[in-house]
Write a protein that binds this DNA or RNA. Sequence first.
DNA 1: TCCATAATTGTAACCGGTTACAATATACTA
DNA 2: TAGTATATTGTAACCGGTTACAATTATGGA
Lengths: 333, 333
Amino acid sequence: MKATIKDVAKFAGVSVATVSRYLNHSPLIAEASVEKVRQAIEALDYQPSMMARGLLHGNSKTIALAIDDSNTETYGNDFFLKIQYGLEHELTRNSYYLMICHVGTGVDAVSTVRTLIHENRIDGLVLLSEMAHGELLELLRESQIPFVIAGRSQEEGTLWVDIDNIEAGHRATERLLQTGVDSVGFLTNSFDKMFVSERFQGYCNALEAAGIEKKDCYISDGLVSPEQIAAYVETHKDILCEAYVASDSTIAFYFLRELYKRGIRIPEQVQVIGFDDSVLAAAADPAMTVVEIDVTKLGVSAAKLLMKQLQATELRPGQSLLPVGIIERASTK
Amino acid sequence: MKATIKDVAKFAGVSVATVSRYLNHSPLIAEASVEKVRQAIEALDYQPSMMARGLLHGNSKTIALAIDDSNTETYGNDFFLKIQYGLEHELTRNSYYLMICHVGTGVDAVSTVRTLIHENRIDGLVLLSEMAHGELLELLRESQIPFVIAGRSQEEGTLWVDIDNIEAGHRATERLLQTGVDSVGFLTNSFDKMFVSERFQGYCNALEAAGIEKKDCYISDGLVSPEQIAAYVETHKDILCEAYVASDSTIAFYFLRELYKRGIRIPEQVQVIGFDDSVLAAAADPAMTVVEIDVTKLGVSAAKLLMKQLQATELRPGQSLLPVGIIERASTK
DNA sequence: TCCATAATTGTAACCGGTTACAATATACTA
DNA sequence: TAGTATATTGTAACCGGTTACAATTATGGA
């Protein structure tokens, strides 16, 4: 059977209070007792029960990550797993644990999270900005549980971290401009996603700074399937820009392939830069230069912010933007 | 403040024992009391604390999944996330929760899991077969905690679930043979991985059943980078098989691309079949026919087996193989 | 109407820790 | 050496549930 604090106390010949003091690094304990308890713990391979501790303090040293599986297509699976990895890593450094709450279509996110909170299973929560709305957000607010949003949030008084996507769009565009091109296009299939419009914003800023007219560029909406992208290239084959910023790696991948098939030399004739170092970015031909979106760091940052919230006496809103880098490969000069 | 059982008892005008009986569906409780308690719980939005319950019963209604991040390259990230998703889904159906334990390079899996067990945070564990060795396995055994291995295990007396990879290899090969070809190759970069040698085994079985000599086929080892695969194709360009089974989608992807570049018509001249419906399989050109490896189901099965273990009085070893299907796309006739 | 029996209900101990408070041991001062 | 300040230690209540056992109430038969 697992050893309890009583076993340790008996073995060490002291009271349970003394053992507890040792465990909590209390200064009111004699050197001699410290040693006795240390040895007893060692001998019995004792580890205090989190259940008992948590019951007393009302905390669980556990954080939940709510993942919305319904939009894996938007991000790709890497995204979730990287956030999760970064989060867990940082939590572990702080002796916290990570609980996962997948919310697929049809599963009620709110009730699951409600139970998690009510049963005292979690001390805090990380959720994606897509989920930080309506009922769930309300629940989090009224239950006063610390939470951090991964991704930019419009909601009042929330705490969120995000990759600096405006900066990312800026860097991507700047990178292309540095090669001396004077027409840069922006490719996307939809401006609905926040991160796309932010990257586009950065793209516009960079062009403006360089004094290049946006009207020189082809901003194309509705590119979704490989076929649509092929059709787009067909239509624009004689008026292609010298370089393109693609809103995400998937579009860039199919775009590159289409150019390749038509014998257009990359990067000599047309350069392409994507975002996020996904499997597709590396598998593209030629391999794709991308703005590195360090999603793992996003998880780490979310964890750090949450830890701060847990130590603070009051919940305070705020935001944080993470810098980006560029991974140089063969689709740019 | 959160309501406790005492608040509910007071509100309902009964004792805490009666409330507890209601919570545990005890038969020794009058209809009238049931109703009073039900209303009190409703009114106070009460939910019993898992901490208190767990302290008493010594369980936590929580299962851990240990993920070894050091070999994402082998599986791709989808693999982990799908297992995790299936696992969590099934656990939730059983009112269990999922805790995640990432074990990257340099992080000590054993000590993390040891703490999880000692602190009574988890009732059971799912781990990948790669991790089910030595010290960790020993820890699990001596701590008597129920655990299930995802992936085939050689270890004595363990309980594992896996995709039936032999069957998968068989199905893939059979699928090609049905198109009337009489030379089928098997491509891989390494037979080290269990699942590769199993798929190869299935491939051999299928050929034998069809009376086709294996010596007709080219089994190539050491295919790793796109360059190596290109070199392989260059060497064998005049003696290619009519069809290939590739040990995984990544290899199939690069192989397809190389064939495509050389103007070899797919599937007319050469057919290719891969395994596991990854992003790359769908992004290949032409899109790749694959044997579907339902990793989500693997997670579900692991959860089911674990639930059984938790209800059983003794831990019993065993194994379970999951069937596979085929996703038809354009790389086969 | 009274008593045996069954159906409910309440009391209190317990799970494994923490901590306020009282008790004891030790050191120091006069 | 007595008396007081200080350093350690132990006792017991508590966190929020569960459950054995005792106590209470209701039911039925003589």
